[in-house]
Design a protein around this nucleic acid. Sequence first.
RNA 1: GGCGCUAUCGUCUAGGGGUUAGGACGGAAGAUUCUCAAUCUUCAAACCCGGGUUCGAUUCCCGGUAGCGCUACCA
Length: 508
Amino acid sequence: MPETLNSASLGKPRVRFAPSPTGFLHVGSARTFIFNWLYARRMGGTMILRLDDTDVERNTDASVNSIFEGLKWLELDWDEEYKQSERGELHRRMADTIFQKGLAYRDFTPAHTGDSERSGAQGTWLFNPGMRELSREESDRRASAGEPFALRFRVPREGGQMIRFTDAVYGEQMKAGADIEDFALLRSDGMPTYHLASCADDADLRISDIIRGQDHLSNTYKHVLLFEAAGFTPPQFAHLPLLVAPDGTKLSKRRHGPIVSVTTYRDAGFLPEAFINFLCLLGWSPKNDREQMSRQELIDAFSLEGINRANAVVNFKEPDVGPTNVGRALLPANSLPEEAFDAKAVWLNAEHIRSLPIEELSQRLLPIVREAGFNVAPEKMLRITPLIRERIKLLRDVLTAADFFFVDRLPPYDPSELIPQKGDAAMAKKVLEKARAVLANVEFKHDPLDQALRAAAQEFGIKAGQMFQPIRVAVCGRKNAPPLFETLEVLGRETTLARIEQAISRIL
RNA sequence: GGCGCUAUCGUCUAGGGGUUAGGACGGAAGAUUCUCAAUCUUCAAACCCGGGUUCGAUUCCCGGUAGCGCUACCA
């Protein structure tokens, strides 16, 4: 009696994310994990992490670390974990089962090094007739003589047989067996291939739903064949549209650089929940115009029906060697400018930042500030946070938005900035001297500061803005900054007066 | 080359035999404001092409085109 994978009796789905550790965790993989995870959490199922490390040549520990690092940042968890390389016995057993049923055969053709020599005259290689028809006796004889061979699946290609399956996203799929090549199960060194290992593990782990990239859609026919040959009912499949670069090509580190690596987003100051939110909106829609969603809201809204079929562009800017922007010096050397990221990701991040409670945002900001070398007390950070919350899009923007709160002495700025609109140096000086006098006595709280400074403006017969700008530049070192009174309040009298003093001396 | 998948504003998408084809990001303009941001208002911006089917197709069917995927003893 065939074992059932998607046994309805259990009800709870079992899904897996099965990356091959041959590179860093990239955004497409992360999204695949997220969709699996969302589905598992939504349905009360089980999330499995399986490292598909059968390609010993290309696997690296660095890659495994990158995957864990990325998932850790995203605060994504899983219930079971496996390493494919430790399950070789299971894979070989499945290969043997299939071979014993006569559904696979040994191919003694030496592994090819060139690319086209085995391609048939028609262009597509499907199988080696000589090997496929080799008698079992002959095959056994050569095998026991120690001749190396690859084990190939004997794809049913006669009689116009069709292979079919239903994809939860792409619907009914079918393909003629005659169009599928006799793919390898075992390499000549005895190692299982991806197809074999993957199916053997999916069967053994009782995976109920395989949610993966659409690049596997046409591999699925092979997998269906494999499951059935081994006596299993194939699981449910759901293929995800691919994430592609603005030029339409698939994301790759070679071509597109760090922008495709998950850790780049972490280092740029994305909130994990915002990044997840962004990824979810690529190729999936809750269909109710919702955009900003929390982790829980995503879980509640997720369904396979909402998955789109067309590839989605991650609309990042190709790295260019344009002029560096202001404040860049404070950022880590290898970090990307904000404009490099998909604008929607940045916007979503800003939205998530704005909806974070001040206390929490402050806590997330503090390590970044500290790492940049500023020793700021948590209490001070808590007072600064509300002043910049609406002004930062990425967490690291705290370094450029609130820099003047952190430093003891302001870095040099252009003194002409001190001159107010429709004013001159004399006005700037007058304003600053007045401010020095007023601020020496007024209570450093919003309202008293507001009243005192406005009164001073009135006394001079100038606009409030003309009064405030010189002061703002004097204390912040630039024109664009948080509201003045709140800023002064946090900065305190001592720092404020020192900076105004400095400004006065510079304006001459 | 073969096989397959896909096609709505620049981008992410909703929709669907009859709609002013909706939302969001980004862009533009304006309002507000002590600057910047945030916020609010407004504007520009799309159904790949050609045939069918139909009273009527952006929607359904076929073809084309384009993009992508698979076509390895990679995954």
